[in-house]
């Protein structure tokens, strides 16, 4: 019989350690089956959370070999195949407080979520007595984001969160804000959006971890792009993020390509750049990586590129 070696990170409230279990391999099982089998057949002291076991309650996300998965709908065979191994290491989700073994605490996250007012602020057209009207198309806007099951996989994988727990919002919190910002029934989208901007919206690293691992395939990174657009539409242009994005936007329009030399100045302004980026600039110049005298020429076809800009403006309006 083929055996799997399963190492699980245990935590009893004080000490943490890894415990090894040997489990006979079975075909066609899920990760939740594996955890349940260990608990019921080998070690009833092992703790993890699970409930619905079909990917709707969001209880059972864990890390396996360094990545977050929802245990109930992840086929064991897929995981073994991914890592080409019969050795699995289980750990609780990253970026969460752990209470015991694989069990994490959610309340602090919900507390944090209240920053974005994660509830509808009803618009004046609706009432408790008659509800709202909302078009099918407008409903479609909130269809994907309301798939979120608060499993925490996105937060566990988020690279910004890993180094900025206090400042940055978990992708599922951004999703919740997005969900009400685009909900036509909401009467005060700016009340959800402002806190998003104030909580490091521009620090998303574009690493695509959240969107790549979300078990509900919610387009989280598209949402972040939307949130950024929305803050800029609100006039929030005087920040590094917006200025950085506009540097690219404008360079492509003017020349077709990025002017790397000017990028810091466009993003941070001359003074800030002089204060913080001088050593960087000097070492770049020294290695020939920046040539302050080199200004990119306009590409051939720049007129056509500008037509695309014009057309995109037409499409927007």
């Amino acid at each position: 019989m083929e055996m799997m070696t399963v190492k699980i990170k245990r935590f009893d409230g004080r000490n943490s350690y890894y415990q090894k279990y040997e489990v006979p391999y079975e075909k066609g099982k899920t990760i939740l089956w594996l955890l349940t089998t260990i608990r019921e057949e080998q070690d009833p002291t092992l703790n993890f959370t699970s409930a619905c076991r079909h990917a709707i309650c969001g209880s059972c996300a864990v890390q396996i070999n360094g990545n977050a998965f929802l245990a109930c709908n992840t086929p064991l065979d897929d995981v073994l195949d991914t890592y080409k191994t019969m050795n699995l290491t289980f750990e609780p989700l990253k970026n969460f407080e752990v209470i015991k073994d694989l069990v994490i605490v959610w309340e602090p996250k919900m507390e944090k979520m209240t920053k974005v007012k994660p509830w509808i602020i009803p618009g004046e057209e609706g009432s408790k007595e008659i509800g709202f009207l909302q078009s099918e198309e407008d409903f479609q806007q909130i269809a994907a984001p309301t798939d979120c099951i608060l499993c925490g996989v996105c937060a566990s994988e988020c690279n910004q969160l890993a180094v900025n727990q206090d400042g940055y919002l978990e992708p599922f919190i951004l999703n919740k804000a997005y969900r009400y910002i685009v909900d036509t029934r909401d009467g005060a989208p700016e009340q959800h959006l402002k806190p998003v901007l104030e909580n490091d919206l521009w620090k998303c690293l574009h690493c695509m971890q959240c969107v790549s691992q979300c078990p509900k395939t919610i387009p989280l990174t598209d949402q972040i792009a939307f949130l950024r657009s929305a803050t800029m539409a609100m006039g929030e242009l005087d920040n590094q993020g917006a200025k950085h994005a506009y540097a690219f936007h404008d360079d492509v329009k003017n020349k077709g390509r990025l002017n790397e030399t000017m990028l810091p100045i466009k993003t941070d302004g001359l003074v800030q750049t002089a204060l913080t980026k001088i050593p960087f600039a000097l070492r770049m110049v020294k290695k020939g990586k920046i040539n302050p005298l080199h200004m990119p020429k306009q590409i051939s076809g720049i007129q056509e590129v500008r037509k695309l800009y014009e057309y995109a403006e037409e499409v927007k309006s």
């Binding site: 509808i120 009432s127 099918e136 409903f139 009400y180 909900d183």
Partner: peptide, 15 residues
């Protein structure tokens, strides 16, 4: 149903 709608439940919609 109207109350739930008012609470933000995203109901599918008719035409």
């Amino acid at each position: 149903i109207s109350e739930l709608d008012y609470y933000g439940v995203p109901f599918s919609r008719d035409e």
